[in-house]
Every structure is written in structure tokens, then in C-alpha cells.
Design a protein around this nucleic acid. Sequence first.
DNA 1: GTGGTCTAGACCACA
DNA 2: GTGGTCTAGACCACT
Lengths: 127, 127, 127, 127
Amino acid sequence: MIVKLDLQADIPIYTQLVNQIIEGIASGQLQPGEALPSVRSLASDIGINLHTVNKAYTHLKQEGFIQIHRQKGVVIEPDAMPVVTESYLVKLHEQLKPIVAEAICRGMQKEELLQTIGTLYQSIKGL
Amino acid sequence: MIVKLDLQADIPIYTQLVNQIIEGIASGQLQPGEALPSVRSLASDIGINLHTVNKAYTHLKQEGFIQIHRQKGVVIEPDAMPVVTESYLVKLHEQLKPIVAEAICRGMQKEELLQTIGTLYQSIKGL
Amino acid sequence: MIVKLDLQADIPIYTQLVNQIIEGIASGQLQPGEALPSVRSLASDIGINLHTVNKAYTHLKQEGFIQIHRQKGVVIEPDAMPVVTESYLVKLHEQLKPIVAEAICRGMQKEELLQTIGTLYQSIKGL
Amino acid sequence: MIVKLDLQADIPIYTQLVNQIIEGIASGQLQPGEALPSVRSLASDIGINLHTVNKAYTHLKQEGFIQIHRQKGVVIEPDAMPVVTESYLVKLHEQLKPIVAEAICRGMQKEELLQTIGTLYQSIKGL
DNA sequence: GTGGTCTAGACCACA
DNA sequence: GTGGTCTAGACCACT
């Protein structure tokens, strides 16, 4: 998988990396059980510090998307991906609320917004 | 309008304030042309720093949601709200992408996600 | 509160710090709502790196024992301490199992063990 | 005896193996004088590295739970199991302290904790 | 002045 | 060779 980072963006690099990997899983480019590069090799590949990669991996582990085997490396969670929990839905609402509110302010119709998101959903999943 | 801030969230306070005001506009609680409290009074009302309110107002002005007049105070943009521009759509995509990707990873179906967002859209607009 | 760390022990420093703070809360030396030292001041006080303190604080935050206010500092969780959940009981069992097993191997009677722990419980709480 | 290892836990594999064997002794599944599998056979049985098993056995020997004879193999200490020494009690206290402290923070009553441990004691011994 | 992030370089336990 | 930990020093956003 190709990782694209914007080192100038105001989004932390480790967050961008987390997002990229989640998108990779969503699109099927990263399959459950598949190995991820070691912190060192990925860090040198994309030209960032190994601690930054480490922070991203640790975050993904805590969220349940990957497993970190102490001395063997990192793999995509092979068994059960995280599911839709109550607390996730709360988080999802909080994330979406300001985005939807701004769309409303800009006069975006409900169908327009839903279609945009539907298209996005397909384009991610369909890779 | 009542402003609710979470001082311990990892979202900057000024961003929360910006979001609250945008939601207020989206819900119709804040009407175009309506006056907003002065920086000082709002700051003391919700118990935060002057600079924080100032930063939020400045941000909203740059986005085109409010007007700031030296002596007359702050009003919701009375004429033309920002609209759906090309650059806005790009930003919208970037914001939504990681959210949608995580929803896919967690096994959320497209219809499920769209319905969640549709409901959210109505609940904001319908206030 | 006085913090005692063993820099030579095989327990990570940040873990020792986490434990010390939890013991401080358990003993009542640290009261809910009370402020903790800033990462920098605590780090220099006990002569360790600020990142190590940061890691300890972040861990305590994730466990729900403290709140980290972005620019204001760190306080003991003022509202609701973490409670006894199902997953906590599982973790507790896993932690205790090898300890109890060794005690059995060494011929420690059940009453002997329980009394030791009961005394320990009191000595922590009674500070 | 069946050995259960969690390769993704943050507890070293050799430590898990040590714990399992101690629990086996505590439960009576492993009797004093009983032979343990050779390093090689155990390693291949549970699919881990030779060195890992070796490290676990060496650790158990140092603690006095097993004897290692060059050609004859490994046996559970037939004569005198380790007993409750002063230094063991110190170690026990250090291990239990953070666990008990967290239980107190979570509002666990003394009786509740003691009963949990009492039950655990029986369940290990009663196997 | 606060915590958040990133970089750089080092040592260690583990396998 | 792997991840885990610690140190050191720097810049930034926020208040």
C-alpha cells in the first residue's frame, strides 16, 4: 500500500498515518492477518521518525485494528474487527455534527450531502 | 443560544466555539443579521479567555459566516452565506474520508451510515 | 505527595509513576479535583524526562483516573472514578492468578494470604 | 498438562510459560518428582523458540521449582518446594500493592476483594 | 507556561 | 531484527 502524508498539514503525522491504514483496511488493500512493515522500515520508507510510526501503531492497536506481537511484528487484526458499539456511535455523532452543520449553513440539501457521502463510501470500499 | 463547551476535550476551545455558532446558524437559532455578543461579554459569560473568543470570531469571519464591525459589534452575515464551492467540497471530502473509512471497517452498511447522517441532518436543522 | 522511583528496577519508570499516583489516590493523599504538577515540573523534580511523565499521565487519562486540560494542567478526576467493570474483573483475575499460584506452591494457606492482603488493603487506605 | 499462551499479550512468552507451570504445580497437575518435557519437545509442541523454553526452565530452576539434570532431563523439584521467606513476602507485597491500590480506587470493598481472591485460590488449588 | 508533536539517538528484552 | 523504553532538545497551538 502506498502511504501519502502531508507533512505541512495541521493534522498530526501519526493521525494521518492512522487514517491511511484504516482506509487501507476499509478498501481491502490491507487484508486481515496481513503483516504491516516494521516501525523502522516504514519510518525510513516514508521518511519520518520511528517514534511517530510507533505512536500510530499503538493507537491502532488500542482501537483494535491491528495486533502488535512483541518481537515478531505487526499484523492487521485477523479475527474480529472492531464493531459498531454504542460509544462508537456517540463518537461518530460528535465527529459528524460540525461537518453536517457547516454543510447546512452552505445550503447543501440533505440529498446532496447523502449522495456525496454515498459516493465516497463506494469509492473507498471499491478500491 | 446556549453554548456548551467541554474544557477537557482534545478539541481546542475556540474550535468548539466556532462549531457551536455554526450549528446555531444551521439550526436557525442564529438568524442572518442577528447580533452576537461582544467578545468581552461572551468571554465572561462562558468563563473563557478573551483571546479564545476573538480567535473564534476571526475564524468565522474568514470563513464568511459573520461580519465584524469595529464599533458596532459582531453580526451573523446578513447577505450571502458561504456556498458550496469547489474548494469546500474538497475539504468536505478530506474531513469525511477517515470517518467513512472507519465506519466501513466496523462493518457499517452504506444505508445504515446514510440514515444516521440523514437523521443528524434533520435533528440539527429542525431545532 | 512524595514519589519514590527505582530507576534500576525492571519495571518501566512510567509504570512505577502510574502506580504511585494510583496509590496516592487510593490512600486519599491525592483528592479528586486536586491538581497534579505539570509534566515539566514533575519531571525535573524527580529527575526524569518529561516524555516519561507524559506517558504516565496519558496512561492515567486513558484509564480514567485523571483529566488533562490542554493548556491548564492535570487534575485528579473530580467526578466519577473508574468503577468495577466486567473487563476490569477479568484483568484483575489475570493479574492475580500467577501471584496466587506461586503463593500456593510455597505452601501459603488461604487465610494467611487473605490476611496479608487485608492488612495491605488497610495500610494503603489508611494513610 | 495443556499450555495456553497468548502470543500477542504484552507479557513475555517465557513469563507466561513460567506462570503456567507454577499454576500446574499449584493445582497438583504437576506432582513433585514428575518429569517435564525436554526443551526441544516442549518447544516444538507449543510452537515456540527453543531459547524461550530454555529461559523459562532456567527461571524456574533459579526460583527452586524444578531441577535440571544434564542428561536426565527436567523434573519438578521432588524434595522441598520453595517456602515463604522474608524476601518472598517483600516481593509479594510489591506485586500486590498496585493491584490492591487500583481496586480501592475503583471502590472495591475489602470483603469483595478478599472474596474474589479466596475464590481464585480455591479454583486454582481445586483443579 | 501548558500539553502536543516531532526528531534523533541510544539501550534493552525478547525471539 | 523486533518492539519497548528512556533521554534530549526543539517547535507549535492554545490560553
